[in-house]
Simulated scan of single mutants.
Amino acid sequence: MPANHPTVAHGKVGVLLVNLGTPDGTDTTSMRRYLREFLTDRRVIEWSRLFWYPILFGIVLNTRPGKVGKAYETIWNKDLDESYLRTYTRNQSDALAAAFESHSEVVVDWAMRYGQPSIPDRLTALKNAGCDRILLFPLYPQYAASTTATVNDKAFETLMGMRWQPALRTVPPYHDDPAYIEALAQSITTHIEGLEWEPEVVLASFHGIPQSYFKKGDPYHCQCMKTMRLVRERLGWDEKKLMTTFQSRFGPEEWLQPYTDKTVEQLAKDGVKRIAVINPGFVSDCLETLEEIAVAAGEIFHENGGEHFSHIPCLNDSAAGMAVIEAVVRRELKGWV
């Protein structure tokens, strides 16, 4: 071995929490950069590039950055000048690191699939810190190719550029994990206990995917339905009391149904006066929960005759939310820690 051969750090175990992503700011340039990375991902938009790119670069990236930026502005964490998704993901990483304080060999970090900090940057940092084994945790309870798979893709793409790769484990979906089901059930009951009124209906609103993705074999819809079946069983409720809907559709395709916005509108028109909405598929509150549900869905409900609307926060970095993340990580690290 050459005398100047560098000392290689080793013996550590990394845990990388990864969420969807966030723009760096609400300005048009930051939004365009973020949306371009997101909407050029072949896992997200599966259309032919010949068809999609003229639409994306000719229309979408010239019209949506301003509109989406204004939406982000309404839910921006002004104190830290960042999105709440970034705030909560960092907090989750810090809390998990504290939970593993007695395991000096464990290094916890966080990244975003789109935007900063990136998966390649944080995987490289963990490797340089001596992590020869890394647990990759896509923060999605239900598996979808457009979420979980693209996180895994990016991680393995990063490894392709390494001569000396760390061993990599990926966290499987945990849509039916008892700790997760219990945390959701508790968050619903605790929130309702804090209201001065009783919801007639609680909607569980998941992010949608195109029907075509489901028909190609994506398990997402089935896992969402199982999650809510288990939560209903835990609460002793039926499907009329706790309904499952899907939000955030984009483009001309049919997406998973029933649609959240249409359901909220119809419930109000049918005479339902009091509803609450929870987002079980989101580990952290973000644009899709804080603006699309807490604000926009609430407005739809009130405009159509509804009287009381409440958004049930995501688990975020709460004690219950962290108990879920920690339980999954401890299980998946077995044999390594």
Rank of each mutant, 00 (worst) to 15 (best):
L20G: 07
T28V: 15
T29F: 14
L35R: 04
R49I: 09
F57C: 04
V60T: 15
T74P: 02
W76H: 10
K78E: 12
L80D: 09
Y88M: 11
L96E: 02
A98H: 02
V108M: 00
S118G: 11
R122S: 04
R122I: 06
L123M: 15
T124A: 15
T124S: 14
T124Q: 13
K127W: 08
I134N: 04
I134T: 09
P138C: 00
P138G: 02
Y140V: 00
Y143H: 15
T147V: 03
V151F: 01
R163A: 13
Q165N: 08
L168T: 03
R169H: 12
E182L: 09
T190C: 09
E193I: 09
P199L: 01
A204M: 13
G208N: 03
Q211I: 11
S212D: 08
Y213L: 09
F246P: 03
G251W: 12
E253C: 08
E253I: 03
W255E: 03
P258F: 11
K269L: 15
V277P: 13
V283H: 07
S284D: 09
L290H: 06
V295W: 01
V295Q: 14
F301I: 00
N304W: 08
N304Y: 12
G306A: 03
H308W: 07
H311T: 09
I312K: 02
N316F: 09
K334N: 11
K334M: 10
